[in-house]
Amino acid sequence: MNQPVWLLMQKEYREIWRSYRLIWLPLVFILLGIMDPLTTYYMKDILQAVGNIPEGMALTFPKLSPLEVLSATISQFQTIGIVIVIVLTAMMISKEREQGAVALLYIRPIPVASFIWSKLCSMLTLVLISVCVGMLASTYYITLLYGAITIRELSIAFSLYSIWLLFVISFALLCSAWCKNALSIALSVLVLYGGIIVDAILGQYWTISPWKLPHYAVGVSMHSVELQDVWLSIISSVMSSVIFIVVAMIAMKHKKDTVTI
């Protein structure tokens, strides 16, 4: 691997380890991952324990398939989990620039691409590990309470969700390279999380979009989506990510002036 990228990645990994991110972010995703299988399964007991249910009222819940519960787990990731990922990524470059530590690296002969790659790879590693353990924790309870999920189904879900995460991280990195810290966070949350809300409300009118991938992650195994739409959504996500990364490199080069010294 290119030496500056590797050296910068070592710095990033040390931060991830020493700031305990490698512990608390997977814990967040594990918590989100087990929440739906458990609460859905024990909902009747929970409601009865809470009380205030009129006597004689019959509580009936639909029987969910394992894949439907996995889909609900991904929806959980799409709430708090994704906001944490967006905020962490959106601060990566802008915060470093505002605090000034990067000034002593900018003066060295390091290609701008190395900075972006090191940030992208380290964040992607952290987030994919977190999501992976979150999904595995979810799968454990789904298998225990609802029935088995095959490795193939789990792999498809994880792969498609990973492409969505690549899209999210690339866009947040672009914002971080382009804007000041507060603006970077605001813009990333607005576009990415705003897109999730828009897709939830109006998503029935289109079938190809990066925001569809979390839904398709389980939809493919449930045969409820067109494969062509999935592929086109994958292609659009990957291509957008490449464009975001290239523009982030250009932005970073032009924003050297804004570093605090």
Binding site: P4, L7, L8, K11, Q99, G100, L104, P109, T260, I261
Partner: peptide
């Protein structure tokens, strides 16, 4: 007012900048 990556120690920091 030099700023550094506070989570590194001096040896790690200097090794990194030397190689960079």
């Amino acid at each position: 007012y030099p700023k550094f990556y506070s989570w590194l120690n001096a040896e790690e920091y200097l090794m990194m900048v030397a190689q960079l």
